[in-house]
């Protein structure tokens, strides 16, 4: 995983729950450019634990002077967002991975329709800048509960292609209305809660949209679960995975070298072979094939867990 040590240049509250952070190179060097929808992984040295969370980049993809992210504080989460909100100050240095895009625009599209729910607005902030620069037709629908919670309002430009739907004001997303009447060749991108992504998929299916033009990003944090033990075949060691820890984090804490990138079950980098499984793997990824899942021959340690007698993996 290629990464850079960057300096926190600014930290600013956008809403009571969402903070924007800007990172710059300590010597002022230009950072690699990226494409709209890309994310970085931020490393947070939190006492004994090294946390790593992925965040979409919200700055201009063509601006190498800095990277910006927006972090929503999840009080019931595993601690990464609380660390960012509570501990990170301007002047601090954090290790940031180079951008990787698992949610890119399909540039063949005749038109791009972007649908965001809540903090799911973040990948679209950079995409909107890219679309405006490339002068491509698009519309963005951004749904939030209230204006006070809608961090995206401070991040988006004031252009007629952007439509804000505030449910407290009685303005709800009308997916059927948005999806009907779009020109042929339109691609749809959804980011937000699982329910929104499902609703768009269902509306698309009802209206006869091909599946391949419906894109979505469910950027999930590793789900908690019961603690479990895993046997590492190469060393013969057994490691324990805590209730709020991912298998990937437990491997890292045990000093096992393992490649990773998105840490959200989407990129495939940490895919690991299962040598023996007596029990059930709880697959939470979006990467493995149905065959790999049902045969329990592979596991994605970043998000998936295990319940049962013994799990032996090729690490």
């Amino acid at each position: 995983m290629t990464s850079l040590m960057l300096r926190v240049a600014a930290a600013e509250s956008l809403t009571p729950l969402v903070k924007r952070f800007r990172f710059e190179h300590p010597q002022g060097a230009a950072l690699p450019l990226f494409s709209g929808g890309a994310h970085v992984v931020v490393e947070m040295p939190d006492g004994e634990v090294l946390r790593r969370n992925a965040y979409s980049l919200i700055s201009d993809p063509q601006d190498g002077s800095g990277y910006e992210i927006a972090v929503r504080r999840e009080d019931g989460g595993r601690g990464g967002s609380r660390f960012m909100h509570g501990r990170v100050q301007p002047g601090d240095q954090l290790r940031i991975s180079l951008p990787l895009n698992l949610f890119a625009l399909d540039l063949r599209a005749r038109k791009h329709v972007l649908i965001a729910g809540g903090i799911g607005i973040t990948p679209f902030v950079a995409q909107v800048r890219q679309l405006l620069r490339m002068q491509l037709p698009f519309e963005l629908h951004y749904a939030a509960r209230s204006r006070a919670e809608a961090a995206g309002l401070k991040l988006l430009p004031d252009v007629p292609q952007i439509h804000v739907h505030i449910s407290d004001e009685g303005d709800h997303l009308d997916l059927g209305g948005i999806l009907s009447g779009q020109p042929l060749g339109t691609h749809v991108y959804t980011c937000g809660p699982e329910g929104l992504i499902t609703a768009v998929a269902e509306a698309g299916a009802r209206l006869g949209w091909p599946k391949t033009v419906l894109h979505s990003e469910v950027f999930q944090a590793p789900p908690p679960g019961r603690p479990f033990a895993v046997v590492l075949a190469r060393s013969g060691r057994t490691i324990e995975v805590g209730a709020h820890q991912s298998l990937l984090e437990a491997l890292e804490a045990a000093g096992v070298e393992i490649d990773w990138s998105c840490r959200g079950g989407a990129c495939g980098r940490c895919e690991t072979q299962v040598l023996s499984c007596h029990g059930r793997i709880e697959h939470h990824d979006h990467w493995l094939s149905e065959d790999d899942r049902s045969s329990q021959s592979r596991i994605m340690p970043c998000v998936s867990r295990f319940r049962g007698e013994t799990l032996i993996i090729d690490r």
Binding site: P32, F34, L98, P99, L100, G268, E271
Partner: peptide, 11 residues
């Protein structure tokens, strides 16, 4: 293909 899809910038 899995390897190539994950090729990162700068690497």
């Amino acid at each position: 293909l899995k390897f190539l899809l994950a090729v990162q910038q700068g690497a």
